[in-house]
Design a protein around this nucleic acid. Sequence first.
DNA 1: TTAAAATACTACTAAAGAGTAGGATTGAAT
DNA 2: ATTCAATCCTACTCTTTAGTAGTATTTTAA
Lengths: 212, 212
Amino acid sequence: MSARLPSRQQPRAWPSRRHRDHASKRDAIVLAAARAFSRRGFHQTSLDDIARELGISKPTVYYYVENKEQLLFECFRAGLAVIEEGLKKAESSSVSGRERLALVIRHYVRAVASDFGWCMTRAEDQDLGPELGGHIRQLKAGIDRGLRALIEAGIKDGSITCTDPKMAAFAMAGACNWIAHWYRENQPLTVEELADRFLAFFADGLRTDPSR
Amino acid sequence: MSARLPSRQQPRAWPSRRHRDHASKRDAIVLAAARAFSRRGFHQTSLDDIARELGISKPTVYYYVENKEQLLFECFRAGLAVIEEGLKKAESSSVSGRERLALVIRHYVRAVASDFGWCMTRAEDQDLGPELGGHIRQLKAGIDRGLRALIEAGIKDGSITCTDPKMAAFAMAGACNWIAHWYRENQPLTVEELADRFLAFFADGLRTDPSR
DNA sequence: TTAAAATACTACTAAAGAGTAGGATTGAAT
DNA sequence: ATTCAATCCTACTCTTTAGTAGTATTTTAA
């Protein structure tokens, strides 16, 4: 499991071998948890299960993570980072609102189709305490605001037509979130193709007549 | 709780007073369960909780329902019935595919925004056993097929334009399912208004230029 | 009136699983 | 070599809750 190189003298920088080990082991635990939650659900997955899959013991998991709730939270955060990266790129971009929205949605789809997708979309607020639950609600609300702002920017710059940006944002977010329910690795479509199809649908809907 | 009229002699018809009582009490339990699951989540809701809210005891709940899993299943079925009603109406209708699709989606939105919405969309397959879980997967797949068939019918009769009916169905179903995550009674929009907005979005997307 | 069936309760059992106590082992630094 | 901290384990505790045993009460049918 741990191929520990001798590596003499690597003095005062943070990612010391020891710290890197610590962080990467913790990450491995979070990833294993995300996969387990995704396959069997949060409540059907015991920390013993996760430990067993990693070949370690439950107290070792607790050495790296405060508790099960925190573990779920970390999974959520890991997925969220991908979306926030997209939002950040969009902010510092000067293309049209429509194109920036598409950029964010691509990231969104990627996140939701990843190992962390389940935790981001299907975990219940109640499974986190009021503390972390509230935190997550805030983060989600931030994403929703980001989406809506992009739609509104697109309306303003003429690249988007939309009468109800709020509902449009809800519809798009819902469609993307739901991907976590059905997307599996062996899908005929890659994640990027999937994003393309969704973007095409969001762009034109089911409209009949382009010249109507 | 039970105002029981004397009602002498009501001989061989099925819905005897007794049976009606039984069925309606069972329904009341299912509804209370749906609301409780929706508010606190499946695993955070004990059968004692549900019983307490109804002013009865846990064994009484078990008198009407086999087990917790079955209870969840019934909630699911109750919501599903609304959608299937829509599909049936659509089948026996002769308007365009587009209009039939809209009809079904209206029912869909109604179901998902109802008390049973949570159970239909957020309950985990794993919380039902392999038996009931499989059953539900089948029912869900049926709905998906129904949606897709309507899109294809719309393409055929010229009322819908769509390059990937499967993904379009997934996107629309996802958007609608997600309503259960955020719709609450005190929303500014009624369910019907909500359905209108979603249908408008599905119809035209965010298209810029109608004459493009 | 009375026997059978239906309905309901109090008081349990049993299992699962989150989280911990306390100790062993390993590695780094002096 | 030896100490201190980091890492990891075995073997628990403790709570929650699904589900049941056994019994009391009510209703229906004869």
